[in-house]
């Protein structure tokens, strides 16, 4: 099992989820992707879109300031 990191704190909708999906496409089922993202639109939409499309969001933790880390299982 692999765990990869992705930083989308500089991205805007829809590229936040686009980059997340591209990174997920490189993983195998069961692998984990840790995504750093900012509050607001990315934190609201990326976990929701990932769940809608059949991925599991395992945890969302506050890192610092407006940055959060979500862990997605493929």
């Amino acid at each position: 099992m692999v765990t990869k990191q992705l930083d989308i704190t500089k991205e805007h909708c829809p590229m936040t989820f686009v980059k997340t999906k591209i990174e997920l496409s490189r993983l195998q089922p069961g692998d984990l992707l840790e995504v750093l993202l900012t509050e607001g639109e990315p934190l609201e939409n990326v976990p929701r879109s990932a769940t809608e499309q059949g991925f599991r969001v395992l945890e969302i933790i506050h890192v610092k300031d407006d940055i959060h880390k979500i862990t997605i299982e493929k």
Binding site: P14, V18, Q53
Partner: peptide, 22 residues
């Protein structure tokens, strides 16, 4: 692998569950 400009150009497809990267 998609380049950055391809990722942007096809972003609305990539987001779709039934299209996606694949």
């Amino acid at each position: 692998e998609f380049t950055d400009s391809q990722t942007e150009r096809y972003s609305r497809h990539i987001i779709l569950q039934d299209v996606g990267v694949e």
